[in-house]
Design a protein around this nucleic acid. Structure first.
Length: 972
RNA sequence: GCGGGGGUGCCCGAGCUGGUCAAAGGGGACAGGCUUAGGACCUGUUGGCACAGGCCUACCAGGGUUCGAAUCCCUGCUCCCGCACCA
């Protein structure tokens, strides 16, 4: 197999328009895979993602289905904007990434400074690579999410949702760069990647008509405040917050001013003047002194901290340090004030009244500078949050769980204007690529999709429940996410995309514009021919809901054609996507379908993918740890890459690209070609797959081979129905190959005669003809080449999928030849054929083993078969169903199967043990079976064998050892 | 923390509607064949002990259900993944 041959077939498929699917009278299968965001080159991880649907599509086509497998490009969103600007600014890391990892040619590289060009460049590269991989895509339906007709579709979708009341307006915090004047994503950051935005509560402590506003995660500890901390070495300011006077650190203003409208600086404040003064607790009304502390970070929160030494290890140790610092105490005249009582708020099992002290002592923390202080804080925070109970002396909240009390206290304080909310990064600093510090900005007038809406959630759950989810385990994941999803900010300031139709300053966010695009595929080819201005809401309502309207601009006949096409393909049968998208993309997909479409058009199934590893390590483009799909194909060819990706793991498992195993895969593929030559050698003339000469089969081993073929076909078919590509290949390639090897081994003594054995030629030809077809979805190019070379009819792509009933349901051949001993039941026939071969193999194996043990070559080998009464006992044992020897014996004696009770007892013991290891299928003609294979057995053990019908010659009394399916052996 | 999924032989990995499981398949290792040699390919071995087709120990650890458990139940230990404005 060469790339040229692969290209040859790709071209022929295209010319024959094999993958262009239109509605017709056939049963349809519509499957989509997440359309790619083309911001880089396609690597082997992507290869797996897109090969799975292709394999399934090809499989279903061979089963006679009309399959639609389309592809589009999800180019909306912000990442390419960042990439483009980095290329423009000649950011060395980005340039190297695109040159070395994505292998963009030099002359193209500089053009990538245009985000539109990036998506254009990579989507056409994707297109090319997908063709090279042999994907059976209907390219007439290709589109980009920035296409104007797609934008019309998305605007219709959003208007529809708004009409249904699923859209609202609100505020939302985002990572933001004040210098770029834009929200920033993780990929836009120099520092602080993955840092969370936390919500903090600002608590207002009054002093002289102004407020100190410490920020906290734990508003419930307001009951345990003993003092406030200010950093005397830091600049503080007074700001006016809509009439209220707040004192905050100067540095925190940078962040806070992005969150509070009209926050104005009034003037500077000297923190030293506040040390030693008292503030008023907004809840308890107590007076708390203000103490100096160097640990207070002016960048974090508001630069003011309140102190809860009972429950915050940092506060506890800071207070202790202060008490020991007589210079400082003297300087601020705090000797008296520092003598405060530590308060308890939360009760915890296994902890004292002052849990902060317990933790400090447990970890042996000496002072504020101790690095273990963070660990102490985290530990106590977690324990109190999950296990803590508000102590009995806390008014209103006594006995309440901390987690609950926290929310209650917070909202009640905010209600009473005693508190406010702010956001800050969990870690500092967060630096934009432009070099400036980022802040958390509250975007107002943001638009939300109300995923919190209970009715909507309920409908979505209903949608989920009627779907096939593969693998089934992730269904509970979906249930969780549907419950957990909150309102989603669906509009953006930056990126490529569609404008919100009713508020043009916003772009529709890319997770929102990719929820029902499968519906778009079904009509995409038609829309290309329609005038944009005619794509109004009336049009989409007609197409998707068959709703007539006077506003329809498109010609009625054309509309009907499109409408028919949509109703033919919808609902979507399968949606494939990666498992990290369950929480957003895939859940949104459910939400939107549930909201917009009637039940009969809800999606039918989802398949969720695992990740890709490269030699055991996580694949990552940005770290350069990838192999490009084009390179892999160059080296091994598309079929080998496909075969490896499909064989090494099931789609939902993580797969590992290991060079050594890829090479092994290549060898296996080569053997398929060698197999054809083997058949021709035996046949002595070329194979003609459309003209296989039928032969009546009488040897059991020939039937066995056909039976195995049937088994493998059935297993592979079942596996493919459930997207188990690995299991399918395990059967259709590896295990079938093993069976063929076994068969060849079994018949080799028949071939040595030099005379052509027509039965063998027939069996092998049948195997070959099926084999090519069941592998065709995986290795379409090789299969096509073989099919074509050996006289197959038409394209193998269009050949029928083998049904796994060869010679068993339609043909009388088998029954004629074996009717002497075999009942009519078809399954039984199969079982007997399998059992026969097992017996033959068992005999050979046992003889070999005994020979080894005895260490001498016998002249003759006698084989004795189980007496009829033993079969009777076996049958009784089977009826008893468990190795209850007493019962088996009792019944056997009761039925008087044999006169010698001692022998029955011995045998019952034996069969009790044996029956758990053997499959009982009733009495079979052992003599005939062994006779059929006599020449093989003799050749194998290199000794003459005598199969006895009666036991008249039995000098060493071995015949008694015979068990059904397991004859006794005597070596003479 | 919340939620989900795992722990199988040297490694990866099937099995997990209980018995045909010393446990598929691949990789590796070892031995043999082929070959001028290497590679490739083919065959065999790859838990221990037996030496008339057998026995013992084994599927994270401990306990339970059962005539019988890698498979079912409980407990513990441990690993991985997702948690939002990002595709």
């Amino acid at each position: 197999m060469t790339r040229e041959i692969e290209k040859k077939w790709q071209k022929k498929w295209e010319e024959a328009k094999l993958f262009q699917s239109d509605n017709n009278e056939k049963e349809k299968v519509f499957l989509t895979v997440a359309y790619p965001y083309p911001s880089g080159a396609m690597h082997i991880g992507h290869g797996r993602t897109y090969t799975v649907p292709d394999v399934y599509a090809r499989f279903k086509r061979m089963q006679g289905k009309n399959v639609l497998f389309p592809m589009g490009w999800h180019v909306t969103g912000a990442p390419v904007i960042g990439i483009a600007s980095r290329i423009k600014n000649k950011d060395p890391w980005t340039l190297e990434l695109y040159e070395k990892v994505h292998k963009v040619p030099k002359e193209e590289l500089s053009k990538l400074k245009d985000p539109e060009y990036i998506v254009k460049y990579f989507s056409s590269e994707y297109h090319q690579v997908m063709n090279d991989m042999g994907y059976s895509i209907d390219w007439r339906r290709e589109f980009k999410t920035t296409d104007l007709s797609y934008q019309k579709f998305i605007q219709w979708q959003l208007r529809k949702l708004k009409e249904m009341g699923f859209v609202r307006k609100g505020n939302h915090p985002v990572k933001y760069c004040p210098s770029c004047d834009n929200p920033v994503g993780d990929h836009d950051l120099l520092e602080g990647e993955g840092v969370d935005v936390n919500e903090l509560t600002l608590l207002k402590f009054e002093i002289d008509g102004k407020y100190l506003v410490p920020a906290t995660f734990r508003p419930e500890t307001i009951y345990g405040v003993t003092n406030l901390w200010l950093n005397p070495e830091v600049d503080y300011i007074e700001v006016d917050n809509n009439g209220e006077s707040w004192i905050i650190s100067e540095k925190s203003f940078y962040n806070l001013s992005n969150q509070i409208k009209d926050l104005n600086i009034v003037g500077k404040i000297n923190p030293k003047e506040f040390i030693g003064k008292f503030v008023k607790n907004p809840i308890t009304g107590s007076e708390h002194p203000i103490f100096p502390a160097s640990f207070v970070d002016p960048d974090y929160g508001s630069g003011v901290v309140f102190s809860v030494p009972g429950h915050a290890p940092a506060d506890y140790i800071a207070l202790k340090d202060l008490k020991n610092n007589s210079d400082l105490l003297k300087k601020y005249n705090l000797e008296e004030a520092v003598d405060i009582k530590i308060l308890n708020v939360v009760t915890l099992k296994k902890y004292s009244e002052i849990p902060a002290r317990d933790v400090i002592e447990k970890l042996k923390i000496k002072n504020q500078e101790d690095p273990k202080l963070d660990e102490a804080t985290n530990e106590l925070y977690k324990v109190e949050h999950s296990k803590g109970i508000m102590s009995s002396h806390i008014p209103n909240y006594a006995g309440e769980r901390v987690a609950t009390a926290r929310d209650m206290i917070k909202s009640s304080m905010i209600n009473d204007s005693l508190a406010d909310t702010m956001y800050d990064f969990a870690e500092h600093p967060v630096i934009c690529r432009c070099g400036n510090r980022c802040v958390v900005k509250i975007m107002d007038n943001q638009w939300f999709l109300k995923y919190s809406d209970e009715d909507w959630k309920e409908k979505t759950r209903e949608c989920l429940n009627q779907e096939n989810i593969i693998p089934n385990e992730v269904k509970s994941n979906f249930e969780y996410y549907i419950g957990w999803l909150n309102d989603w900010a669906c509009s953006r300031r930056i990126g490529l995309g569609t404008h919100l139709p009713w508020d043009e300053q916003w772009l529709i966010e890319p997770l929102t514009d990719s929820t029902i695009y499968m519906a778009y595929y079904s009509i995409a080819n038609h829309l290309k021919k329609i005038d944009l201005k005619d794509l109004n809401d009336a049009f989409f309502e007609k197409i998707f809901f068959n709703k007539d309207s006077n506003d329809l601009k498109v010609d009625g006949e054309i509309v009907d054609t499109i409408q028919n096409e949509f109703s033919y393909w919808y609902p979507l049968d399968w949606r494939l996507s990666a498992k990290d998208l369950i929480g957003n993309h895939l859940s949104f997909h459910l939400f939107h379908h549930a909201a917009i479409f009637p039940k009969e058009n809800w999606p039918r199934g989802m398949v969720v993918f695992g990740m890709g590893l490269l030699e055991g390590n996580k694949m990552s483009s940005s770290k350069g740890n990838v192999i490009l799909l084009s390179d892999a194909m160059e080296k091994y060819g598309a079929d080998v890459v496909r075969l490896f990706l499909m064989a090494s793991a099931e789609p939902w498992q993580d797969f590992d690209w290991r060079e050594k195993e890829v090479i092994g895969t290549k060898r296996r593929l080569d053997r398929l070609f060698e197999f054809a030559k083997t058949i021709e050698d035996i046949k002595g003339s070329p194979i003609d797959l459309s003209n296989i000469k039928e032969v009546k089969l009488s040897r059991r081993i020939d039937l066995w081979m056909i039976n195995q073929l049937n088994i493998r076909i059935k297993e592979a078919t079942d596996a493919l129905e459930g997207f188990q590509t690995r299991k399918a290949l395990q059967n259709s390639l590896f295990l079938l190959k093993k069976d063929i090897d076994h068969y060849m081994y079994r018949v080799k003594h028949l071939l040595s005669s030099g005379e052509r054995d027509e039965a063998i030629v027939f069996v092998l030809s049948m195997v070959f003809k099926s084999w090519i077809r069941i592998l065709a979805p995986f290795i379409p190019h090789s299969s096509e080449e073989l099919w074509n070379s050996y006289g197959g009819d038409g394209f193998v792509v269009e050949a029928s999928w083998p049904n796994g009933n060869i010679y068993f349901s339609n043909d009388s051949n088998l029954r004629d030849s074996t009717s002497r001993s075999i009942e009519k039941d078809e399954n039984l026939e199969r079982e007997i054929i399998e059992k026969s071969e097992e017996m033959v193999q068992g005999i050979v194996h046992d003889i070999e083993q005994i020979k080894k043990i005895v260490a001498k070559d016998p002249d003759k080998i006698h084989i004795y078969l189980a007496d009829d009464w033993k079969w009777d006992v076996y049958k009784i044992a089977e009826e008893v169903g468990k190795p209850d020897i007493g019962q088996i014996m009792g019944r056997a004696i009761g039925q008087n199967v044999h006169e010698d009770k001692k022998e029955i007892a011995d045998f019952a013991k034996k069969i009790g043990r044996e029956m758990t290891k053997t499959r009982y299928i009733g009495k079979i003609d052992e003599h005939e079976i062994l006779n059929d294979a006599k020449d093989f057995i003799e050749e194998e053990v290199n000794t003459n064998i005598i199969i006895h019908k009666d036991n008249s010659y039995d000098p060493e009394d071995k015949a008694k050892n015979a068990i059904p399916y397991k004859p006794a052996i005597y070596m003479e």
